[in-house]
Design a protein around this nucleic acid. Sequence first.
DNA 1: AATGAATGAGCCTTCATTCAT
DNA 2: GATGAATGAAGGCTCATTCAT
Lengths: 204, 204, 204, 204
Amino acid sequence: MATTLSSGAQEPKRQRGHLRVAAIMEAGVAVFTEKGYDAATMTEIAARSSTAIGSLYRFFPSKESLADALLSRYVQHTTSGFATLADQAPAMTPHQLADAFVDFMASLHSQRSLAVALVDARGGSDERRARFRETMRGGIATILRNAIPHLAKAQSETMAVVLLHVLKAVAGAGEEKPAARRKLLAEIRKLVRVYLEAAQNDTD
Amino acid sequence: MATTLSSGAQEPKRQRGHLRVAAIMEAGVAVFTEKGYDAATMTEIAARSSTAIGSLYRFFPSKESLADALLSRYVQHTTSGFATLADQAPAMTPHQLADAFVDFMASLHSQRSLAVALVDARGGSDERRARFRETMRGGIATILRNAIPHLAKAQSETMAVVLLHVLKAVAGAGEEKPAARRKLLAEIRKLVRVYLEAAQNDTD
Amino acid sequence: MATTLSSGAQEPKRQRGHLRVAAIMEAGVAVFTEKGYDAATMTEIAARSSTAIGSLYRFFPSKESLADALLSRYVQHTTSGFATLADQAPAMTPHQLADAFVDFMASLHSQRSLAVALVDARGGSDERRARFRETMRGGIATILRNAIPHLAKAQSETMAVVLLHVLKAVAGAGEEKPAARRKLLAEIRKLVRVYLEAAQNDTD
Amino acid sequence: MATTLSSGAQEPKRQRGHLRVAAIMEAGVAVFTEKGYDAATMTEIAARSSTAIGSLYRFFPSKESLADALLSRYVQHTTSGFATLADQAPAMTPHQLADAFVDFMASLHSQRSLAVALVDARGGSDERRARFRETMRGGIATILRNAIPHLAKAQSETMAVVLLHVLKAVAGAGEEKPAARRKLLAEIRKLVRVYLEAAQNDTD
DNA sequence: AATGAATGAGCCTTCATTCAT
DNA sequence: GATGAATGAAGGCTCATTCAT
C-alpha cells in the first residue's frame, strides 16, 4: 500500500515519521476545512499537529503538496466505495440504490467538506480539479449503468453530473443541527429516489 | 427636500460618486469571480475600475464591506425574482414551476459564480453566510407553499434547502461546453420536476 | 533621461518617491558591495535606507530587479566614460592611453566593487552577466582600435578581454592601504603601458 | 605509535572514514563550484556523496569548515606548485617564466573556479581570504626574486599582487569557447611576458 | 476630495545545525 | 558511529489599510 504522500515529498523512513505525517494530515484536514485552502496557513497546520514548520515541509514540500495528498486520500476512499457500490448495484432497486448513495456520502462525513474546500474553491490547480471530478463522475456513471441496465452511456454520464451535485448536499447537511440534519437527509433520500425511479421508467 | 439651488451644485459630485461606485462594484464582481475572495486584491479592483486605491477605500472601507455590498445586491436581485415567482406560483403546475425555477437560476447566470466566490468559499464572515442562506431558503419555501397549497411549513422549509442546493447546479452548468450544458440543464429540469410532482402527490 | 528603474517597477510619481528610490539604490550599493548578492537581504537594504519593506518592493518588485537597476546605472556610467575615451584615443600615445584607462577605472571607484558583487559572483542571471561583459569588452575594443589604427578587429577583441580583466585589478586596489594602493596603481599603469606598447609595435 | 594490535582493529574504520571524507570533499567541490558558496546546501553535498547529513557534520562540523578544508587543499596544491617553480626560476628567462606561470595556472583548471567561489565571493570569513591571498602573493614574489635576482623585495611583492590578478584570468578563460580560449591564453602569455621583461630591464 | 506613497504584519519556504534512535 | 527526523531563525515577498500631500 503506497503512502498518501505524493509529488516530491520525502517518505518517512521511521516509525516516528509516520506518526508525524498522520498528525500533519489530520491537522491539515481540520484547518483546510475550517478556513479553506487560501486562508489556511502552514504555520497553523504545523502548530495544530505540534510539528515544527521545518518538519512539516520535510514531508510536504509545499502547501499544495499537502492539499494534494489529502485529496488523493479522499479520492481513494471514494473510489473504493464506488467500486463496492458498483458491485452491489445490479441487485438493487432504485429505491435501495438511492439509500445506498446517500448512506455512502454520509459515511464520508467530514471528508466531504474537505474536498469542497480543496476542489470547489479557488486555489487548487484547475487540472487537479478536473481530474478529480472526472473520477467521481465516472464512478457514479458506472454504478448507474449497473443498476439500470438499459441506460445509455451518454445519459448515465449526464445523470452522474447531476447526481454528484445532489449528493454534495449530504456533506452540507453536516452543518445543520441534528434534528434538521435528519430531516434533510431523509429529504435527499427521497429526491434521489424519485430521480432514479424516473430514470428507470424512462428506459423501460 | 433640498432646494434646487444647493442641490444643483452638488449634483455633479453625487453623479460622479455614483459612477465611481458602480465602476468599483463591476470591477469587484469581475475580480472576485475570477480569483475568489481571498486571491482577489483591492489593488486590482481599484486598477480595473480606474480608481485610486485611496478612493476605493473612501467608498468601501474594507475588502469585506465591498464583498458585502456585492452580495447584498445579489440578494436583492434574487429576492425580487423570488417575489415574482411567488406571485405566479399559485397558477402553476409543478412541471411549470420546475421550469420556472431553472429558468430563473439560469438567468442569474454569472452572478451565481460571484455568490459562490463570496459565500460558499471561506473568507466571508459566518454571519453573513447564514443570513444569506436564510433569505434564499425563505424565498423558495414561500414559493413552494404557494404552488402546493397543502404543504406544511416545516416540510416546505426542508424542501427549500434541498431545492436551493439542486438549483446551484444550474450555475455550475455554466462551466460546461454548450452541448453538455444544454443536456445538463434539461436533466436538472427533469430532476426538479419529478421532485416537485412527488411532493404534490404526497400532500394529496 | 529615463529612470534607472527597470522591469516591472512602479515609477515614482512624486517628489518623495524619487528621493526614496535614490536612498534605496544607495543602500543597495552598500549592502550588495559589503555582502555580495546572495548574502545581502532586502530587509537590511530597507533598514539602511529607512524605508519600510513594502515601500522598497513598490519600486523594486524583486531583489533581482534592484540589482538590475544598480547594474544598469553602472553600465551607463561606464559606457559614457568609454565613449569619451574613444573620442580622445586617436590623439593618444599608448602611454597616455594606459594612464587614461587606469584613471578611468579608478574614478569608478567603489562602483566597481558593486559590479563584481553583482556580476562576477553567482546569483545574477547568466544572461545579464553575458550582456554586461559584451558591453564592456566592446567599449574597450573600440578604444583600442581608435588608439592603434592598424589593429585588427579580432585582435582588438582578444586584447579587450585581457585588458578588462587587468583593469578590474584597479577596483581591487581599493581594498589595500593607501600606501600600498598607490604603488599598486602605479604598477598596473606600467603593466597596461607595456602591454599597449607591445601591441603597437606588433602592428607596425 | 599505536601497537599493530589495536591499530589493526581500527584500520578498516579509518579506511572507510577516509573514503567518506574524500567523497564529501569531491561533492563539495562540485556543488560549491556549480552554485557558489551561499547557494550550495549541505544537504545537496551530503546527497551527492551518498552521505547522511549527520555523518557529513561529523567530519565537517560546519559549512564553513568544509569550505576551509577545500580551500586548504587548493592552497597546498598551489603552494607546492609554486615551490617547484621557485626552484626552476633561477634558470629561466622571463619569457620562459611567463609561459611557466600560465601553464601552471591552466593546470589548476577547474580548481580555480572553486577558489573563486570560496574566496572572491562573499561568504567566507575575511580572515581566511586574507591568509589565502598572502600565501599566494608570497609564493609568486619568491619566484620573481629567484628569476630576477636584483629585484627589490618590496617591488617583488607589488608585482606579485598584479601578477596574481592577471593569472586569475587564466581560470576565466575556461568559460570561453575552445578557439577563443586558445587565443586568450596566448594573449595572456604575451601580457605576462612583456611585463616580466620590462621588470627585468628596470632592474638592470 | 483625490491620489498614491507608506506601513508592517504575516505568508510560504529554505537550510544550517542538533539530537534521539 | 550512522542515520535521518526535528528545529526555528530568517529570507523574499504580498497586500489590506492608513495618511500625507
